[in-house]
């Protein structure tokens, strides 16, 4: 299945019945798939007049208590920033897919990871985080969609799948758990779905004019973030046990990096790979652990080095962190990464 279509089908299997989107390359297949499938299962596909409207429709659906998603690519995510902030501020769950392309501006349409900062640091204005997942295969995209929905509901935090044009466009075999039974969603006592004259009215709101009150609400949310950081961080470690050198890469780039790590091992270089699967929360502890025996780190990204600071912070700058990246839609090759690894290891072979 094509990555974009797999994301869509996985969402449907996870109980997502509402989709709001706006056409943009390279994620269009996802919306097209939803347009075909959702009406057949009693769901709703709606093409909004703008990215801005789409994210607000998502907020409306999320507030009403249903499982819903929107998808876009980089420039479109910038437009959604406002809505993402409001969702975070009103504790409304929902899933946002970003099939990244090159930027800034209109940029290009080739694969990119240049929205790392946007996703992990500033998906909108204000004091907040969203859950960010970075799959590296079509199968993992599928697995993370239902996981992201669950966590988003449980913690009442919006979630994002940070994919890229390569993952969205590529086809790989996938297994999607399909069940004819309806997915049981957690009861949402807070949802604005009509009080039916049986309870006080619910309010979904991000406005708190009293400074003390807003501080209290934000602090409570950050307590939740702490629980998320402790329990929901995901990362893959590959050949790190005896590694002198560590490559850190996420998403599609991690596959290229893994190929290079294998080649470097064949040359006798003791190197391993740490692949953050959640970008927020970031796998700080895991990086700290491997830093004990590692001499230095190499971040490989499809951007100008956006994750480097997070790696440095995770290991308290205790080891040098080098960077190799391609940007603008250029995908690094295993050979290029291998060359960097050889350089990192001082040419020892």
């Amino acid at each position: 299945m094509k990555g974009n279509e797999a994301l869509a089908e996985a969402a449907i299997q996870a109980g997502c019945t509402r989709f709001f989107g706006y056409p943009i390359t390279p994620q269009t297949e996802l919306a097209a798939y939803m347009a075909k499938r959702l009406p057949k299962i009693g769901g709703v596909f709606l093409q909004a007049e703008s990215e801005v409207s789409a994210i607000n429709m998502l907020q409306g659906a999320g507030a009403a208590g249903v499982r819903a998603m929107t998808s876009s690519s980089s420039p479109g995510i910038s437009l959604k920033a406002e809505g993402i902030s409001y969702m975070a501020g009103a504790d409304v769950p929902g899933l946002i897919i970003n099939v990244q392309r090159g930027g800034p501006g209109l940029g290009g349409i080739q694969p990119s990871q240049a929205d790392y900062w946007q996703a992990t640091k500033a998906p909108g204005h204000g004091d907040f985080h969203i859950l960010v997942f970075a799959p590296n295969s079509v199968q993992e995209m599928v697995d993370l969609v239902s996981h992201a929905f669950d966590l988003s509901d449980n913690y009442r935090v919006p979630a994002m799948i940070l994919a890229d044009g390569l993952l969205g466009q590529m086809m790989e075999p996938v297994e999607i758990k399909s069940s004819d039974e309806k997915v049981e969603l957690p009861k949402k006592q807070w949802a604005t779905c009509g009080h039916n004259n049986e309870r006080e009215h619910n309010i979904v709101n991000s406005l708190f004019l009293q400074a003390n009150e807003l501080e209290r609400v934000v602090r409570e949310r950050f307590e939740r973030y702490k629980v998320i950081e402790e329990n929901e961080t995901m990362c893959e470690k590959y050949m790190t046990d005896d590694a002198d050198y560590i490559v850190v890469a996420f998403g599609a780039t991690a596959r290229v990096a893994k190929a290079a790590v294998k080649d470097a091992r064949a040359k006798g270089i003791k190197i391993g790979l740490v692949r953050p699967i959640t970008l927020w929360p970031f796998p700080k502890e895991e990086l700290k652990e491997v830093a004990v025996n590692a001499k230095s780190f190499l971040c490989v990204e499809m951007n100008m080095g956006q994750m480097v600071e997070d790696v440095k912070l995770a290991i308290d700058c205790s080891r040098p962190v080098e960077f190799f990246g391609r940007t603008g839609g250029v995908i690094p090759t295993p050979a290029e990464v291998l060359e960097q690894i050889v350089k990192l290891s001082g040419g020892e072979q």
Binding site: F20, A48, S53, M57, G60, A61, V66
Partner: peptide, 10 residues
């Protein structure tokens, strides 16, 4: 847009 999301859901 919010109202649309709600109405289409409920």
């Amino acid at each position: 847009a919010i109202a649309t999301g709600v109405k289409r859901s409920l």
